[in-house]
Design a protein around this nucleic acid. Structure first.
Lengths: 211, 211
DNA sequence: TATAATAACGACATGAGTGTCGTTTTAAAT
DNA sequence: ATTTAAAACGACACTCATGTCGTTATTATA
């Protein structure tokens, strides 16, 4: 008469399966990944894995839920930090560059596959929109703070700038996933992006944020 | 003793199958589309379809080959037209907006699925790179002409501007495929993109290209 | 009109992934 | 040490798309 294992144990197993799933996604992509693959990669049995997840979609959802939360939190942390807003933005963009490069070997592609296949089913679109909307919000607020402080004199509405930046990052990420950072000259693009933003926000040149 | 049908007939059949395939791709996406689907959609038999294409990959490749060629040609035609370069660019960008909207219902998603799944296999990457490279080239040359003519005084290297624009378009297209043009305020983004370009290229304000 | 080449057909064998479920193993509680 | 709840196993039946291939229908030519 006892629940056979502790909750921690179950959580460990769950994590273990998710890690195996992630490796499979990186290697084979989202659509081509099968439960069989994850079973083999995790070293567990078919029945065992099914005890925790009933599809690869469940697994990817679980993986992304956590990562999206971390992403937004990181963005909010950046946005909330002290100092000149322009410096924060520059740091943020360079941080994004690292992220893009890291994900460009397989995992980004798998995530895109997942989102794209989901966007086909209307019920999933709201969650995409929510994430997009939150990202826009955080970025607009950051730009607004810089403007309020007199750091910027934007020549384009802030919300439009925010949306453009997000589109830009998305495009670079996708291109990177397709062709790799070198081929698209990612680093130059990132620096040019910063320069462009500086012009559009009319950041006075005395703001120096060279890394 | 005769080749049973004319070449035109075979070409017609081929087109007919490709059209059916495109409808299937729009409806189900690339990965979930099966030969069975295309067979049923085309109204032909299994054996008949296999006589023309041996996989959905073949079909998508054939569809895209033509469209990519048309795309580049259209871009080159734009770039080659007379008149102020700034006007050409503005027209080009607004044209891209139409393209993005048109493709946002299913087909763009299918194409992304296709490219992403292909990028996983190295042998396909060169063709992606080639297309990307050509697009950059055409755009750089256009910008260069405007600069040579004294229309622009770019504050950022032209090649970087070109790459940024291409990333931007890619990002907007992807977001549109995910969430639709309204949700991402595509039109505002397009106009903001034009405005941003105008600033970065330092196009004198007398250049009026309001549509 | 007859014929020969082949386009088109569709049933079939095959292979791969899925979800289940009866059995075995494990570990907490007695 | 024994009990027992449930974690883990893995074989099995099922589904579905694939590629083939022997058969049938079609149409340019003789």
């Amino acid at each position: 008469m006892s629940p056979k294992v502790s909750d921690e144990h179950k959580e460990t197993r769950r994590k273990q399966i998710l890690e195996a799933a992630k490796r499979v996604f990186v290697k084979k992509g989202y659509e081509r990944a099968t439960m069989k693959d994850v079973v083999e990669e995790s070293g567990m049995s078919r029945g065992g894995v099914y005890l925790y997840f009933s599809s690869t979609e469940d697994m990817m959802t679980a993986l992304l839920e956590e990562e999206e939360r971390e992403n937004i939190e990181q963005l909010e942390t950046f946005a909330a930090s002290d100092g000149p807003v322009w410096d924060i933005i520059v740091q943020l963009i360079r941080d994004i560059e690292q992220n893009i490069v890291q994900m460009s070997s397989g995992y980004a592609a798998a995530i895109y596959e997942f989102y794209i296949s989901r966007s086909r089913y209307e019920k999933y679109v709201p969650s995409l929109q929510r994430h997009y909307g939150r990202t826009v919000d955080v970025f607009v607020k950051l730009l607004q703070r810089g403007t309020d402080r007199g750091e910027f004199r934007p020549v384009i509405p802030l919300e439009h700038i925010a949306r453009l930046m997000i589109s830009l990052v998305e495009g670079m990420t996708l291109h990177c996933a397709h062709m790799g950072p070198e081929r698209i000259d990612l680093h130059a693009q990132i620096e040019a992006c910063i320069a462009m933003l500086q012009v559009v926000l009319q950041v006075p040149p005395e703001s120096n944020a060279r890394g």
